[in-house]
Simulated scan of single mutants.
Amino acid sequence: MLAGLLVGFLGLPSLVLGLLIYSRRLVVRLEREGLHARGKVVRVRNPRSNKRSVDYAFRPPEGPELQGSFQEWPPPASEQTPGSPVDVLYLADAPRHHMAVGTGLSRRFFLFIATVLVLFASTGTLTALHEYFTRPEKARPSTTPAPP
């Protein structure tokens, strides 16, 4: 039981935090080293909702056309329509890594989610350990097998 709780309170937040760190590092690398390209909006999904998806396409000079998408929440005052221009950042050595300018995982959001994950992991782990070690000896499961 304790092992399951520790996996839940330490393992899952660590996995999510690792994915967030990877995403944030990629955004920082794109912002620092990324090359600029001009793309165009291909499609706008849920144009009337508070959160809409914008699909775009661009062609780096050294390769085929690439596509991506980003979320607008809340949508800006100017309406994106198919054919509208989009500024794109991409890595010269890996053009498959790209993003529309200003749409990556922000530092503020990353720090907020990382803080929530660390607080969740530490509170859950400390609570599970406290409950396990403060239980009366009789309630604790036996780890030694019974003699035959």
Rank of each mutant, 00 (worst) to 15 (best):
L19T: 00
S53V: 15
M99L: 13
A94H: 11
P147A: 07
V41H: 14
A77G: 11
F120I: 09
F109P: 03
N46D: 15
P76C: 00
F110E: 02
V86I: 14
R25W: 03
T103I: 08
F133Y: 14
F58N: 09
F109N: 04
A57D: 05
F112D: 01
P148W: 07
S23W: 09
T123N: 10
K51I: 15
V88K: 00
S53W: 14
P141A: 06
L2N: 03
A100I: 01
Y132D: 12
P145V: 04
F109S: 06
L117R: 08
N50D: 15
G104L: 05
Y22C: 04
T123Y: 15
A121E: 09
T103R: 13
I21Q: 09
V7E: 11
F70P: 00
G83H: 07
Y56Q: 05
A114W: 14
A121Y: 06
H130W: 12
H130N: 07
A37H: 04
F133S: 03
A94P: 00
L35G: 04
L5Y: 07
V116Y: 06
L129Q: 01
R135N: 08
D93S: 04
P136S: 15
F120M: 14
A92T: 05
H98T: 11
Y90L: 10
R59H: 06
P145R: 13
P148L: 10
W73T: 03
T144P: 03
L129H: 02
V16Q: 10
R32S: 13
R43P: 01
R45G: 09
D93G: 01
A139F: 08
R135G: 06
V116L: 15
P141Y: 05
G4W: 00
L17Y: 12
L117W: 05
A121F: 10
R107P: 00
V42T: 12
A128V: 08
G11F: 10
V27L: 11
L117Y: 06
P60T: 13
G18T: 10
D87R: 02
V28L: 08
L2F: 00
